[in-house]
Design a binder for these strands. Structure first.
Length: 556
RNA sequence: UGCCUCAUGGUGUAAAGGUAGCACAUCAGGUUUUGGUCCUGCUAGUCUUGGUUCGAAUCCAGGUGGGGUAACCA
């Protein structure tokens, strides 16, 4: 615990600000636009913003950046709030940029009165044309020199709804030759006769991001307004507005958004996957959304740990998914109860075990947790085992079943295979073994050592469950940087549904979100659609599999 | 092309002019009634060229490469 954790560059800035007395406490905010579900990239920002005010004195607001009524919906507001809380964070205030519409309107009037904003009748095409290019200065709008009185009158009439969409905009009067394109008389307000999810039809003019965000920060006395790198050019305008309005000086700091290999994290692309039914909704377990990951079985703790490990910096990055998978496994290994399930079953018959006999075994729930307790596990003559655990002609290092081979059945006996049966297609249908009654788990004094231990489910006691196996959604590491449509890189085998898996009785009557390790198969969670009559388990992540690695090496 | 920004093993991230470290991944081994967990060890890095300095990943200058930016989106 004596280890001093190094600070990221934002924490360093804050520490300096605090030390030098610029602030006594800080305020941050998480500012989502309610036009999509939160994803793993947002989780990073959430952990940053809320984490900052856990390590330093201060608080964090949740503020919805809802200035574009055409794309925003209450459904998104609700999901965003749920996801943040599920991740384990609580905001101090729940605010909306739309709360400030009246105040923002007032700010705009102030700029007009200072001669720093004007109403422009140009079309968007004309404005774009007059913008110039990075190397060529733009040109002034013919409406740029309207009088203050006329601008004020026009702007108020815009608000009254006298003009149709697109007829006029309010622009800042800065410099059409500015090297920063953002500063070439940016649009501040536009006319949109659209229904807003919160203000209804009260407004028909809406502020642009650049006029809403900074002022909202200022109104809330946000000290450190943290956003991603693409907003760097906007900082100059952010500061310009605050300084000319002479309001609380919030400051903007930028970090590089985190990206994850084999996934996309762009709301536009995620929306597309949902709308085109490539996935089954925002919370499809293959989605990198918080809700998708939650349904997949990720824990909030593991996502927080992940965000902590990948850190915050300003350079471009693609974090390897294996880092994320490591974090879930690490947590789930500690908390998930062990169960047995067979996904691809083949029958095993213990020929020297009395027919009709059954034993109730005492199986530990979690070897990592001494307080984890035990469960009853029925054993009998006929068992289901995993088809891949038997090989007719096993290679040397195959520590499972094959003619003559010996293995332990987890929590039960050591068995030896002496025969098997195949159908006319050559498919193994039954495997015959004998068991050694002296080798019962916990009472084994035989001294026999075996290399392999296998999972199984008693046929007579097995329950049927649906198991959903997920794989990465994309075939390439960075779909966003690949040529052409990102959808052409989708992995069409990202979901494999097993309708009839056999599970031990202790797996009945679980609740949505319960987490288990199916021995040797991976971590699974009960899906929200699961019912006692039709249980469904989602595979969160497989176990590390050094045997699979070995066989892959052989093939190469 | 202007402006902005970034550059440390395969990946992510530290080192505030003084021994380049940590984690993931990889590889090799040990323990194990999960080929899991755990433990041990290996491999592998400062974009380039100059300068300042006793000493540079760090400071300066030039180059190269990546990313952002020219929506009535955020």
């Amino acid at each position: 615990m004596s280890e001093e954790k190094s600070l990221n560059f934002i924490e360093e800035i804050i520490e300096t600000d605090l030390k030098e007395g610029r602030y006594e406490q800080i305020a941050t905010r998480f500012p989502p636009e309610p036009n999509g579900y939160l994803h793993i990239g947002h989780a990073s920002s959430i952990c940053l913003n809320f984490g900052l005010t856990q390590t330093f004195p201060g608080y964090t607001n949740l503020r919805f950046d809802d200035t574009n009524p055409e794309t925003e919906e209450t459904e998104y507001v609700d999901s965003i709030k749920e996801d943040i809380q599920w991740l384990g964070f609580q905001w101090k205030n729940e605010f909306y940029a739309s709360d400030y519409f009246e105040q923002l309107f007032g700010f705009a009037c102030q700029l007009i009165e200072k001669g720093l904003a004007y109403v422009d009748d140009s079309t968007s095409d004309e404005i774009r044309a007059m913008k110039g290019t990075p190397t060529q200065p733009g040109s002034n709008s013919p409406y740029r020199d309207r009088s203050i009185a006329e601008n004020l009158d026009l702007f108020k009439r815009m608000r009254q709804g006298e003009f149709p969409d697109g007829a006029k905009v309010l622009r800042a009067k800065i410099d059409m030759a500015h090297t920063n394109m953002i500063m070439r008389d940016p649009v501040l307000y536009r006319i949109k006769h659209a229904h807003h999810h919160r203000t209804g039809d009260a407004w028909c003019i809406y502020p642009m991001y650049d006029f809403a965000h900074g002022q909202s920060d200022s109104i809330e006395h946000i000290t450190h307004s943290i956003c991603t790198m693409e907003f760097i050019p906007h900082r100059e305008l952010y500061d310009w507005c605050i300084s000319n309005l002479e309001i609380f000086p919030s400051h903007q700091y930028e970090f590089a958004r985190r990206s994850l290999s084999y996934t996309v994290t762009s709301k536009r692309k995620l929306l597309q996957l949902v709308n085109e039914h490539i996935v089954e909704g925002w919370d499809d377990p293959r989605m990198p959304t918080i809700s998708g990951m939650r349904r997949r079985g990720y824990t909030a703790e593991s996502i927080r740990e992940f965000c902590d490990r990948i850190g915050i910096a300003k350079r471009d990055n693609v974090v390897d998914v294996s880092m994320l998978e490591f974090c879930v496994r690490e947590h789930l290994n500690r908390i998930a109860q062990r169960r047995m399930a067979v996904i691809d079953p083949v029958k095993l018959i213990i020929t020297n075990y009395e027919e009709g006999k059954e034993e109730i075994l005492h199986a530990e729930n979690n070897p990592e947790d001494e307080q984890g307790g035990h469960r009853d596990l029925p054993f009998s003559r006929e068992l289901w085992i995993e088809r891949e655990d038997f090989m007719e002609e096993p290679p040397k290092k195959f520590f499972r079943l094959g003619p003559g081979l010996t293995v332990r059945l987890k929590h039960a006996y050591i068995i030896q295979c002496h025969d098997f049966k195949k159908d006319e297609d050559g498919k193994v249908t039954e495997i015959y073994c004998t068991y050694n009654p002296e080798t019962k788990s916990g009472e084994d004094h035989s001294g026999i050592k075996v290399k392999g231990t296998m999972h199984w489910v008693s046929c007579a006691h097995a329950k049927t469950a649906e198991v959903r196996l997920y794989d990465r959604l994309f075939k390439v590491e960075n779909p966003a940087s690949e040529e052409g449509d990102f959808k052409s890189y989708i992995n069409e085998d990202s979901l494999h549904i097993v309708k009839q898996a056999y599970v031990e009785p202790a797996l009945m009557n679980t609740s949505a979100g319960d987490k288990f390790q199916f021995l040797r198969l991976g971590y699974f969670t009960t899906d929200r659609l699961s019912t006692p009559e039709h249980p469904i388990f989602n595979r969160t992540v497989g176990l590390k599999d050094s045997w699979a690695k070995e066989t892959k090496k052989e093939q190469a």
